[in-house]
Simulated assay, not measured.
Amino acid sequence: MQANWREIPAARNSFAVLSAACETTGWHLRPVAQPESDVTCYSLNSINEVRYRDEIANAECITVVGGPHATACWQEVATNADYVIVGEGEYTLPSLLASLEAGGDGRIPGVATVDWYEPVKSSVRLDAFPPFSEVKGYVEISRGCPFTCGYCQTPQMFGHCMRHRSIDGIARYANRYGQARFVTPNAFAYGSDGVHPRFDKIEHLLRNLSHEIFFGTFPSEVRPEFICRESLALISDYCTNTRLHFGAQSGSDAVLARLRRGHTVAEAIRAAELCHDAGIIPVVDFIVGFPFETDEDQRETITAMQEVARNGRIHIHRFIPLPGTPLAGARARSLLSETEKVCGDLALGGKLTGSWNEPEIRFFRRRLK
């Protein structure tokens, strides 16, 4: 039985991860530009899913769909796909392929069909699977997030308990290449519970890495309350990147509290100042258009963006109500004319990237490195 992987730009690292997991049990995922026999696998987010919906429904082969959207909306996705992988796929996908090859019905924990679903009873241990093999990818060092930010799918897909790959496991793969880049919801949370940092463990990790190290920048980031002189010293002493990417998300404390972000505006501004003092450029995420955002909240966000932009860069997003999040089903509010003007001025001045009017862009363009 031939297992294929539908090539989708936004799912390149998922391909690396799942290809490596499948190889451990003898499966080779062949990249294809369209569905092909016998089985074609997809990984979709909640923005690009609509692009592939008809293709999956009309495919003349067995279709398997996973990813953030499939996890959040498995019942909907199962109306078009033959099988839906809900949650993590490293163990579930190879097991599903083995079931299908043996003539089984594919009804195993973690897999949904239009009329059946049984959830898995455990989470993936990262060290049990390689981060990549023949298909190169970034090394995922941590998974899960203890926070419950209203717009984020991460804890819904991977849980609230952080899991970490071992230092030896990370070094084994990261040191194969000239540059080491990592996937994690918060690089400064490595080795910790995600709330109380363990900078000693991060230093131990960095000491075991060779070549160029990019930490806390694309394709990962950090949280503002984890930025301090000690954490910044680790970047200065061990890492190649001269930028640090973190999320402020709003310049309004009222909005941050409602989002359950777990930090204040003052902490985000202070983090940017500390980066500047350490000779590191802060690249700070902001989201505009939250459904409950008042005019004053939006003006406070503009003020915070302008303050950060004096010594750093802004990466902006328009709010997207992602399925499976507390804000699913909400609608983005309109932007004030002054918001659009400030964003435009900052963009023209080279201080801002992203999109404040086309939210989908953040899923199809690479972040500032």
Rank of each mutant, 00 (worst) to 15 (best):
R270C: 05
R243Y: 10
A72R: 01
T217E: 02
A180H: 09
F364G: 02
W27K: 00
L209K: 05
L256N: 10
S250K: 09
L232D: 04
R53C: 07
P282N: 07
I281G: 00
C41L: 04
F15Q: 00
I316Q: 01
R313S: 01
F292M: 13
S133E: 12
E134F: 02
G67M: 02
C161N: 11
T113P: 13
E358I: 15
M1I: 02
R172L: 15
D54F: 07
Q179V: 12
S355M: 05
G324Q: 09
Q153T: 06
Y52T: 01
K369C: 09
R125N: 11
Q2F: 02
G159E: 10
P146G: 06
G89R: 00
T294E: 01
N186A: 12
Y177S: 05
F290V: 06
N13R: 00
C22Q: 03
I302H: 05
R163W: 07
P291M: 03
I302T: 07
E300D: 14
W356Y: 14
S337P: 07
C152M: 04
P359A: 08
N80L: 14
A347R: 12
D297R: 04
S99G: 07
L259I: 15
E267C: 11
Y173Q: 02
L234G: 13
A98K: 11
D82E: 11
N208H: 09
S220Q: 03
